[in-house]
């Protein structure tokens, strides 16, 4: 049986996780969304997944383990280092953006403020990463 494609999201803010989940519902077909509330939670969940997520949305500002630390761990792990990681942050500080790319982020997307914008951003994310690009897990 074919595994359903997976999208993973990490954010410590419950409201943001809810908004992202609702926004994905509007534009996904068969993909399953995995929500994690911390870097540790994500790493534990990844261990249990049958396939790599098509992409990961990663918040930067989180307690205990920052998004940069999570990104560093993923890029250092041969099981996950090919997984596309999209930084999803409220920060528009250029040093954060530059550092994310230096650490191997696949892109950096500014987190929106309203639900309407969330829907629009998530739709653009899905159109590019699920319909235009190919990822190591999405077409295999």
């Amino acid at each position: 049986m074919k595994n359903r494609p997976i999208i993973a999201v990490v954010d410590d803010d419950e409201d943001d996780l809810f908004l992202i989940q609702e926004a994905f519902k509007a534009c996904l077909k068969e993909e399953k969304v995995i929500l994690a509330n911390s870097g540790q939670d994500l790493l534990a969940r990844l261990e249990t997944l049958p396939i790599l997520p098509s992409f990961l949305l990663l918040d930067l500002n989180m307690p205990l383990m920052s998004g940069f630390e999570v990104l560093g761990k993923l890029r250092a792990d041969s099981r996950y280092n090919l997984m596309p990681v999209l930084i999803f942050s409220t920060s528009s500080a250029q040093p954060d953006i530059d550092r994310a790319y230096e650490l191997g982020a696949n892109s950096y997307v500014k987190k929106p403020v309203s639900f309407h914008e969330y829907q629009s951003v998530v739709e653009d994310l899905c159109n590019f990463w699920l319909n235009i690009a190919s990822t190591p897990s999405s077409r295999i």
Binding site: S92, Q94, I97, D98, Y101, S107, V109, K110, N131, I132
Partner: peptide
Amino acid sequence: TSMPHFCSYWKKRVALPA
């Protein structure tokens, strides 16, 4: 055909490096 989706992502959504 692909360019509208390409541009919606890379021109509107992605913060690029300096």
